[in-house]
């Protein structure tokens, strides 16, 4: 079987398109690359959606934690504490348990026991908590001068937040947020590894890497392939986030951008 044939057979196997049976013997490097790559679709799916949704919740949490309203503050603080304070591994376990026990309550919860939704929810909450803390830290570091300037222009409330506080906060948080994004994509490998079962052998990259390690009894080929894919993914994330960072800082002189970036890489 040619490699091209393998790619058409298994390229989309992780989402259920293509050959039903996974290869069982005579494993080739090509099969390993194709299937592990196919699994990366899930990692990207989880990462992108959780990150996109988490961004908004994170902003809300950061504001909540900085809020003067006691209830809002307590809720945000506890949410961030629980999700940042416990291992994702254990969160997955509890989420799966919780969704299972909610299942009899209402059919609405049915899809939550499958990874595509249940694990996404956990990752969404998790990244929101981590990013929320980063945003909160950045919010606390917004220069006082910026706020005074806004006051001087007569801005307050929503316009001040949208035009001054929020952009500055993002600028400050961006390098740490980039790290968080990388961590999140790495965390997606835990989905099928703990808690959520793989359905019809549709799994993520680690699932297939594990499959091959298991069948060939040789971990030294599939896991490095997985590592390679993730290095590429990480480079993509860094490129995309770097572009956004340049856009966020486009008004600053070039030297200042470089300094800002280095200095704030420390936050997470």
């Amino acid at each position: 079987m040619s490699c091209w044939q393998t790619i058409t057979d298994y390229g989309l196997r992780s989402i259920g398109i293509g050959e039903r049976l996974l290869p069982r013997d005579d494993f080739t490097i090509c099969q390993q690359f194709t299937l592990i790559g196919s699994g990366m679709l899930w990692n990207v799916y989880f990462g992108v959606l959780a990150l996109a949704a988490g961004f908004f919740l994170a902003t809300a949490l950061a504001l909540g934690k900085a809020s003067r309203n006691v209830v809002l503050r307590k809720i945000s603080v506890w949410f961030i504490f629980i999700f940042r304070g416990s291992p994702l591994f254990i969160q997955f376990f509890f989420a799966y348990f919780l969704f299972l026990s909610l299942k009899p309550v209402s059919p609405i919860f049915d899809p939550f026991t499958s990874a595509w939704l249940g694990a996404l929810v956990v990752l969404f909450f998790n990244t929101a908590a981590y990013s929320g803390e980063i945003f909160y830290g950045a919010l606390m570091s917004v220069p006082r001068g910026d706020m005074e300037a806004a006051d001087a222009y007569g801005m307050s409330g929503w316009p001040r937040f949208r035009r001054i506080t929020w952009p500055t906060m993002l600028r400050l948080a961006w390098p740490a947020y980039t790290n968080e994004a990388i961590f999140l994509f790495h965390a997606t490998t835990l989905v099928f590894f703990s808690g959520f079962p793989a359905w019809q052998q549709r799994g993520d990259a680690l699932y297939y890497a594990n499959y091959f390690a298991d069948k060939t009894f040789n971990p030294f080929i599939p896991y490095p392939i997985l590592a390679l894919y993730f290095i590429l993914l990480t480079l993509c994330i860094i490129a995309i986030f770097g572009a956004v960072n340049r856009r966020l800082n486009r008004h600053l002189p070039t030297g200042a951008v470089a300094r800002l970036r280095v200095k704030l890489n420390l936050l997470r």
Partner: peptide, 8 residues
Amino acid sequence: RGVPDIAF
């Protein structure tokens, strides 16, 4: 840094 710790 580019590789998930679990893979390592």
